[in-house]
Design a protein around this nucleic acid. Sequence first.
DNA 1: TACAAGGTAGACAGATCTGTCTACAATTCG
DNA 2: CGAATTGTAGACAGATCTGTCTACCTTGTA
Lengths: 203, 203
Amino acid sequence: MPAAKRNTAPAAPAPGARERILLTAHDLFYRDGIRATGIDRVIAASGVAKLTFYRHFPSKNELVREFLEYRHRRWMAWFVAALQRHGGDSKALVPALGEWFGDDGYRGCAFINSVGELGETLPEVVAITRRHKQDMADAIAALLPASRQRKRQAMDLALAVDGAIVRARFDQNPQAALASLERIRKSLLAPLGASSARRTRIS
Amino acid sequence: MPAAKRNTAPAAPAPGARERILLTAHDLFYRDGIRATGIDRVIAASGVAKLTFYRHFPSKNELVREFLEYRHRRWMAWFVAALQRHGGDSKALVPALGEWFGDDGYRGCAFINSVGELGETLPEVVAITRRHKQDMADAIAALLPASRQRKRQAMDLALAVDGAIVRARFDQNPQAALASLERIRKSLLAPLGASSARRTRIS
DNA sequence: TACAAGGTAGACAGATCTGTCTACAATTCG
DNA sequence: CGAATTGTAGACAGATCTGTCTACCTTGTA
């Protein structure tokens, strides 16, 4: 008796099996890591049949790629919105990140994590990560006043942001990382900062 | 015919099976990742019998812990030596890290990578990472002149170093990360830095 | 000499992982 | 109506992973 005619889901429930799979994969991959998450788990958690899964994503690697693209779109949208919400200038950086770091589900940067896990196995993740970080740096640049050094300042800030993201992942609480980041931001953008100070005439 | 009496290795070669296992595991775990490296691979590559392996390391998790402890000792020894070799003050930071980033086998920070992979599965790696990063910050503090803010400066620098480590992992070449780190270092340690500058009387 | 300690090789159990396949049901659209 | 599309359930193959176990060998030392 092969399970008879039980038919729990309406067979074509239309909320989009593909969406459900991608959402589920996102949550599991981000929370537990990619290698730690088997396809079977994704399939079970998204309540989809195996064949359906493989119709949409021919292989796990394909799913990983799409996961990263999806994560990129989603994270960038959150990031620019949060920056605007907090004022839209460089002072917004720390409070915006503070929202993220304080989240229960915070697990660091999905891209940095993926490179660590798959950098050697699946070289595309390195390229995707590079693009992601470039976009992040561009979003940071948009907070800075136009100047000859804006791009460079944004790069430096982006590097410090990555440092804060990493530290907030393993420190007990994210306050220290946020405070360090804020000090770095202030000192990088200080009107009398470092080497440029030495060239500045005192009125 | 069960392989007869072939006896390739002298059975008790004494260069220490345990050492060989740990060394091999280190190279494989660091290069390919922990989850990507099966016990069988470690055993084959270290040329040891399975039973021998399990006598020394009761489980893979045990091996992972010992790997991280070993990595910590080894990396810290390299780090303080490199800093001394480059002058022993804070200017040594960037050239020392440059050595590491330029290495062919560079794969970022083993601890950051491990947290990404196993942070949820094996909580000890988070604690070990915390200790490791604290020791790294202490080594950086030793480069700074004594002052009330030395610890705080070291923390901020350590965060920026983590940012540089991460970026050097996925950027095409490490120069940009090193340049950013150097600018951050200069600006954090500038005599007329940021907020303190505002309190400074202009002679 | 006898034996304990520590080594080798490799079969095996049981879980889990990726990916394929069969068989069938519901919906949509020409 | 009838066919294509898209879904369901789940068995299966083959690889790989962790960890156990048997059987035997070598060396140092009491």
